[in-house]
């Protein structure tokens, strides 16, 4: 069953990796953590759920809806919590994103009701069986979609002008503006993109776990953040590596220990890395 836990870990790791990328994007550009990430994930999940229940059962449309909602709300958070607070001490922005986190959660709970909503299953049939380990089509799809997303991001960052601008602004926004890059616009774009990404992940998670509720984002956001720190928050490949490693470690830890220790393992990793290797596995040294 080692293999089965590894497979579960990789599937879950795909979700963590995408969330971790979002944290890395925001960190890279603003040296800031967006504490409302979990709620963007939750809103994405609701958007996907609404589409599936009321518009069309097409999964692609649901994922797109999650992406768009994440984009829009992410954009809004950037405008309020970061742009409007430029020049104010960083802590104000952080507190503001925490405020957003509560606000969005309570809004969703009021709007959709506090009870858990059921999301229909997709592709839940077994795709392969390897040594008693079952891999469902959904798990295959999740990993595939996550990888496609990462490849697209990689292409965006390394093959387009906008991506170049995002990287340049993240490295040195003053010099980037001397090159004619519109720092505000690039930052806002990357922030929206990070929101869109977690919104998208929210839909994937809703399908994987068949459930949507207002509090669903809290744990994955912390896990995603842990994955980002683990892999190196300044580096997107690091975030991806951190996501998959965390997924695998968590699931395998269940095999060897009581499952009650699962979160304990994740947070132990977070604390150890923050203490001894704050730059993570692949991260570069940064001045904070």
């Amino acid at each position: 069953m080692f293999l089965q836990q590894l497979i579960n870990g990789i599937a879950q790791g795909s979700l963590f990796a995408l969330i971790a990328i979002s944290f890395s994007l925001v960190w890279g550009l603003l040296r800031m953590v967006n504490f409302a990430m979990g709620e963007l994930y939750m809103l994405g999940a609701y958007a996907g759920w609404l589409v599936v229940m009321h518009v069309t059962p097409n999964l692609g449309v649901a994922l797109f809806a999650g992406f768009m909602v994440g984009w829009i709300v992410g954009w809004l958070i950037e405008k309020v919590a970061f742009k409007a607070m430029r020049g104010v001490p960083h802590i104000a922005s952080l507190v503001c994103t925490i405020g957003f986190s509560f606000f969005l959660k309570e809004t969703a709970s009021t709007l959709f009701g506090a009870e858990t909503k059921s999301m229909p299953s997709y592709y839940s049939q077994t795709a392969f069986t390897i040594a008693e380990a079952n891999i469902s089509w959904l798990q295959v799809l999740m990993v595939a979609v996550a990888i496609i997303m990462m490849v697209l991001l990689q292409l965006l960052f390394y093959r387009t002008k906008v991506g170049l601008a995002v990287r340049a602004v993240a490295l040195d926004y003053r010099t980037a503006s001397l090159m004619g890059m519109k720092v505000d616009r690039v930052t806002s774009l990357a922030f929206s993109l990070s929101g869109a990404l977690v919104g998208f992940v929210g839909v994937l998670a809703a399908i994987y776990y068949n459930a949507v509720n207002a509090g669903m984002g809290f744990v994955p956001a912390i896990k995603g953040f842990t994955a980002a720190v683990f892999g190196g928050i300044t580096s997107i490949p690091g975030a991806i590596l951190g996501g998959y490693l965390l997924g695998a470690i968590e699931n395998l830890s269940v095999k060897f220990m009581s499952s009650g220790y699962r979160d304990f393992v994740s947070f132990l990793i977070l604390i150890i890395f923050l203490l001894f290797r704050p730059n993570g596995i692949l991260g570069k040294k940064t001045k904070l």
Binding site: M1, Q5, N8, V219, S259, R262, D263
Partner: peptide
């Protein structure tokens, strides 16, 4: 713990 959504690992075990 409360708030967990992924039971795959526990069930597999």
């Amino acid at each position: 713990f409360q708030g967990e959504t992924d039971f795959n690992a526990v069930l597999t075990k």
